[in-house]
Design a protein around this nucleic acid. Sequence first.
DNA 1: AGGATCGTCTGTGCATCACCAACTATTTAT
DNA 2: ATAAATAGTTGGTGATGCACAGACGATCCT
Lengths: 169, 169
Amino acid sequence: MFLRVGRLGHMSAQPLDTSEHRSGALLDHLARRMRLRSESVLAPLGLRPRHLVALTVLRAGGGTGQQALATILEMDSTNIVGLLNDLEAKQLIERRRSPEDRRRHVVELTEDGAKRLSEAECALAGAEDEVLGALGPDERETLYELLSRASAGTAVNCTETICAGDDSL
Amino acid sequence: MFLRVGRLGHMSAQPLDTSEHRSGALLDHLARRMRLRSESVLAPLGLRPRHLVALTVLRAGGGTGQQALATILEMDSTNIVGLLNDLEAKQLIERRRSPEDRRRHVVELTEDGAKRLSEAECALAGAEDEVLGALGPDERETLYELLSRASAGTAVNCTETICAGDDSL
DNA sequence: AGGATCGTCTGTGCATCACCAACTATTTAT
DNA sequence: ATAAATAGTTGGTGATGCACAGACGATCCT
């Protein structure tokens, strides 16, 4: 008996969670292993793991202001500036002033950025093979799809929060 | 452009794999979001995210020496010491000398440790709801199962490496 | 005009972490 | 038995990541 109310079921009326399978620690563990390998692979491309995260988020939901980006990446906005400076210097992203609100910088992936991101993803195949070696191709795709949806969900949630300003955060 | 001669038979007729679906960046992104929330939730329990990672790994494949643990967690062994000191001071783990090789400290979860880990996982339900809100219960379980297998795979791989005597590391 | 907001820049302080060096206890090889 | 290698421990150092604060210009809102 599960009524899918909002996207955020804060009610948490789950009576018994069979066994508490929290993914947090595993996520942390695998992310670390992946990140360590990524650094060396990405270095020749002039990128660092965090750049890749930013590019990935931008590809998924581009055209966001920097503050929204800070919310999504959950980083301090002052540090976003440096991150975007790096990427803009390499012409992987563009900052354009929003026509509606000229204070705002709308950040978007350039073609070069999308290309570089793809290259990086290709280059990371080996790293992923090492870390996700226990999973077959289909399982990796499933994993990707789940992570992707979760990530996109947070983005939606963040922009909603910004637009609607409903949350008590 | 890119000839895919990968190790795994990706010979499917998909014209182009749209783009290489690398989970690394998403893993990083979600792990960060989860970790930030975890810290405040875990603080009352006297734990930090990294402790949880260690406990989780130990629960999955206990009875390992510290060096093996360092390999699995991909941390410097000197820093493992401090981590385990924390956990041992709280009686969440035990260091016992191995009977076969008395130099070795075999690290294992205590009952208290297992209990505390469960408590922590319960306490993290809210954090996970926020981060994985876009996924339903089944999907979260799938995610957990995939991450779990991937993590266990690395452990196996690491111990294999140790036992078999690696070359050219 | 006044106040709030977005982005930018600078700096400061704290935590993390890899690395080095030295030491003990123990095993293994000669 | 002696020497060398290994597991763990301790302490220190330096680079890095990151949150936070302060100040500024530009812009929006009222």
